[in-house]
């Protein structure tokens, strides 16, 4: 008899909720047991009355006592999530999915490219990479956001700028903005990394990832050293409901992190 139920959530309690941007919030949860996860993995969060949504984990892997998610308010469930108050309870299932390739970064330069809310699943990787900077080569974080006001973890990002190369660009800003504007790929510079050895981790809108990959390929970064986090409709997160299929993969169990070599043939095809 199977008694564990991968489809049934456990109960977690909201410790804190913090507004990141106009439509994005960071939720800190307490779980009955320490919550161990790997950078890049995600949870299914359940709000009674609203339903369940897949949300990547944004916390620090060395802090299993606080489970952190950064959530953008885009639908019913996420609206319910951001309306939570400290002490409220919700359901959590996870962690699920293939993580960022933290096992291959030793001795190599690492380039992290994030677009919009795509920084949320990359934050645990940046924190872990930052903590092990002695063991890796150069660390570079490139971040594209819609506007300066839409940048996640803005204060933390300033700290990253002091510790390693961290650059941001926005699509639009008030005339007083003196920072970079335009595509994130413009910030990719071979000055920051060795293209023949770098490990690249990319997360953002699919179209932005496509452009980032093209820039990296032009510099000679091989497909199997470019890692992406994909997004598809997820219901079970356990590889049994079929919703998140992407070509021959289930994004929930074979991903969400893929290397580009795995998905290259699917990337250009419409409606896969």
């Amino acid at each position: 008899m199977i008694t564990t139920d991968v489809l049934a959530p456990v109960v977690a309690t909201v410790r804190e909720i913090q507004q990141e941007t106009q439509d994005t919030f960071t939720l800190t949860l307490e779980t009955p047991e320490p919550f161990n996860f790997k950078p890049g993995q995600f949870n299914m969060l359940y709000i009674p009355g609203a339903g369940e949504a897949a949300v990547s984990i944004s916390g620090d892997v060395t802090q299993p006592h606080e489970l952190i998610h950064t959530i953008r308010e885009v639908g019913n469930v996420t609206r319910g999530l951001v309306a939570l108050k400290p002490g409220d309870q919700l359901g959590v299932r996870g962690p699920f999915g293939r993580p960022w390739p933290m096992d291959v970064v030793d001795g190599r330069d690492v380039l992290v490219i994030a677009g919009g809310i795509g920084l949320a699943p990359l934050r645990p990787a940046v924190l872990a990479l930052s903590a092990k900077r002695a063991e890796i080569g150069r660390l570079t974080v490139i971040y594209g956001a819609r506007s300066p006001e839409d940048m996640l973890y803005a204060r933390e990002f300033l700290g990253w700028k002091d510790a390693f190369v961290a650059r941001a660009t926005v699509d639009t800003a008030s005339p007083s903005w003196r920072g970079n504007m335009g595509v994130v790929t413009k910030l990719i510079s071979p000055v920051d990394f060795d293209p023949t050895r770098v490990i690249a981790m990319i997360c953002g809108p699919e179209i932005m990832m496509r452009f980032a990959i093209r820039s990296l390929s032009a510099l000679g970064v091989e497909d199997d050293r470019i890692f992406l986090s994909m997004e598809r409709n997820m219901k079970c997160a356990a590889g049994i409901c079929g919703h998140c299929q992407y070509g021959n993969y289930f994004v929930c169990k074979d991903g969400p992190v893929f290397d580009y070599d795995q998905v290259r043939k699917l990337f250009g095809v419409k409606e896969v």
Binding site: D5, L7, A8, P9, V10, V11, Y46, P48, G87, D88, Q89, L90, G91
Partner: peptide, 16 residues
């Protein structure tokens, strides 16, 4: 039915 949940006085219970 996969599971049921009950919410009362701010407490949430989920059981298969």
């Amino acid at each position: 039915v996969l599971w049921r949940s009950r919410q009362e006085n701010g407490r949430l219970e989920i059981y298969s």
